[in-house]
Design a binder for these strands. Structure first.
Lengths: 163, 163
DNA sequence: TCTATTTAGTGCGATTTCGTACTAATGCAA
DNA sequence: TTGCATTAGTACGAAATCGCACTAAATAGA
């Protein structure tokens, strides 16, 4: 078909946008006061991907401008949830390490979310999520690869990793 | 299974979060300077759902706090893309009407996006998007319905419509 | 009716996001 | 080695998001 009807694309991206807002609100309702989703995501990245990551690695992973990651990490450091130290391999750079408090905070947040996950697992056919996950991953990779067609401003070029 | 492994949920919501960021960046690259995705979404809602909608209807549709919608609409009004008038049926309320400029802006933005949609349609199996759309819709509705378990702050309770 | 509760919208301040511009360090190539 | 382009991070300001508190209008209930 030569048709270029944007309805499908608008529909998919619209649903994704609303799900993102709703799921973020759910996450944040379970986080301690003052901690929001990006903070949790950063802590989680250090555990799941690599403790001691550089700020740029994390900015790439989350597809946010590096200034945004600087701000997020400074908040975490202020709360002593991470420790930002010089990168011994590159004196321009830093390394971000979890503190014990940061690790405990992340573990507790996940524990506090389990009731929500239980509700979701009980009320929504989990197999359907299993089915769409590879499509979402491929779509994310596709968008990520084709993003570079437009010259990025401050947003870092990514390697496609995620946290 | 009694297992409550959050990996699947984290995976799905993580991909959705990144796709939201990437698609938003793509959208905004095609919008006129100073206009961002929420502005376009508001204009689009007026066309696709109901011109003359109230700000609260729109806040509900997009799942954002009403103060956020007030701000968004004030920007659109400042650029004379919408006209905000009193609601004849409710003197607390307002009605938001598209101007000719607003309609033209939205049409042009969609036209400017068609190359991106073409790239997506050519490089990604559209059938896979067709397959996941109903799952995304059901997931959005599920999250929307179960959101009310926690007492919302300023975020309006929704009727599930989207724009 | 009359009173209490709910609802729509705004004012305001705190925080987040992000673009631009800058410094410092690295890497590459002549 | 030297010089230039690239990269990591930060400073700064503009805009967006959002929670809280408030006013005014509508609605529900006694």
């Amino acid at each position: 078909m030569q048709e270029n009807d944007p309805t499908l694309f608008f529909g998919v991206f619209n649903e994704i946008g609303i799900i993102e807002q709703l799921s973020r609100a759910l996450f944040e309702a379970r986080l301690p006061k003052g901690l929001i989703a990006p903070h949790f995501a950063a802590l989680s990245h250090l555990i799941r991907v690599r403790d001691g990551a550089t700020p740029m690695e994390m900015a790439r992973a989350f597809q946010v401008p590096k200034t945004t990651m600087t701000h997020t990490l400074s908040v975490l450091a202020k709360h002593e949830l991470v420790d930002i130290r010089p990168n011994p391999n590159d004196r321009r750079s830093k390394c971000v390490w979890l503190t014990d408090a940061g690790r405990a905070m992340r573990d507790k947040a996940i524990a506090d979310m389990s009731p929500d996950f239980r509700v979701l697992a009980d009320g929504f056919d989990t197999d359907r999520l299993v089915e769409i996950l590879p499509v979402l991953t491929d779509l994310r990779v596709f968008l990520d690869n084709h993003r570079n067609a437009e010259p990025p401003r401050d947003r870092p070029v990514t390697d496609g990793k995620n946290g």
